[in-house]
Design a protein around this nucleic acid. Sequence first.
DNA 1: ACCTGAACACCGTTCAAGT
DNA 2: ACCTGAACACCGTTCAAGT
Lengths: 212, 212
Amino acid sequence: MTKGITRERIVTTALELLDDRGMDDLTVRALASRLDVRPAALYWHVRNKQELLDEMATEVMRRVAGAFAAVPLGDGWRDDLSAYARVLRAEYLPHRDGARIFSGTRITDPDVVRTKEPLFERWAAAGWKPADADDAVDLVTAFVVGFVIEEQARRQAAITDPARYSVGQRDAWLGDGVPLVKQAGHLQDDGEQRFERHLGIVLAGIAARSDA
Amino acid sequence: MTKGITRERIVTTALELLDDRGMDDLTVRALASRLDVRPAALYWHVRNKQELLDEMATEVMRRVAGAFAAVPLGDGWRDDLSAYARVLRAEYLPHRDGARIFSGTRITDPDVVRTKEPLFERWAAAGWKPADADDAVDLVTAFVVGFVIEEQARRQAAITDPARYSVGQRDAWLGDGVPLVKQAGHLQDDGEQRFERHLGIVLAGIAARSDA
DNA sequence: ACCTGAACACCGTTCAAGT
DNA sequence: ACCTGAACACCGTTCAAGT
């Protein structure tokens, strides 16, 4: 059972390796040794490293689709899009630099894309055209990707360079004559609160359009 | 004049190299040979490759700040944020995978961050608190980053894999039973139009909040 | 102060050969 | 069909030595 590697075992092991050691240590050789196999063996199952990364991203999106399907149905597009945004962020966050790595990669599994159909059907009932529905999903996706990239970068910087991350250090670094920029830095929050607030703004924009 | 390399020459040459050859060919060795110098020489001016990437990202943001300063003043926060969003996208786009590479890197030059002060001042006059101003800039940034990552990935895929990018191919790949998903794919546009439409939605959300 | 020469410990990938 | 052994053409980085 543990002998003989498969495409699936390679991908899930690669995701584990990424979580444990980070992007720079996600090498074909390290992955092979974790699978108890010589590096060249992987090339029987996967064309090259880029294809491996695409599969990893697709697996993450498969989990997003799965987690989304498990969320109880809400009252309309607003609940649907909120749930999607939260689930997407939740699947990116645990993987180090997940948003940076997995965004903008081609999804290799049509079933992941097919999960949008029931959503589009529900929204059609509310008067949305397919183009509007697609815009809404893509816009929310872009927002979540951008937000989580920044969030994970901040988090990583706080670990590797805690000194420069402090408010006092930042103020000194900024110099004089920019009180508002400094003040904004002092007030800036983190995590869920900030995410929910920004998501609320995006959804308000979508609401404004669908009323017009 | 052409002999003796500086930190600045290294960074601008690195950006040229990225544009010409792409991320994978942006190596310390290729950069050194373009500067007519041995690889080890670069390590006198730059701690390591990560620091070089941070400097490249900072240089791009310096150009964003410069281009933004050159835009004639508009009527209020809406014009300001639109101009910022367009300038940011315009500086990311010409660099292959620019949004992916440059987003989420720490800015090393305080002057770049200091350019936000005059903006915050203008918006304060319109009743915005520093926290609101910061939220707005960060939200627009997140949106542009996410949008351009997807845009550049699509563009790259169209070059390297034109077959799978076609509408007919996509329909076959998706299979039966998802008419709305297919229809959305047919209607999807590209480039400026799409960007302006999505940006409009984000700004509408910000407007909704600042009225509340 | 700034750069070279030479080396170290790695990479991703290919391919004949084994089973 | 699936994996190993061995090799190829690279990497980023360090450091003594040169000027």
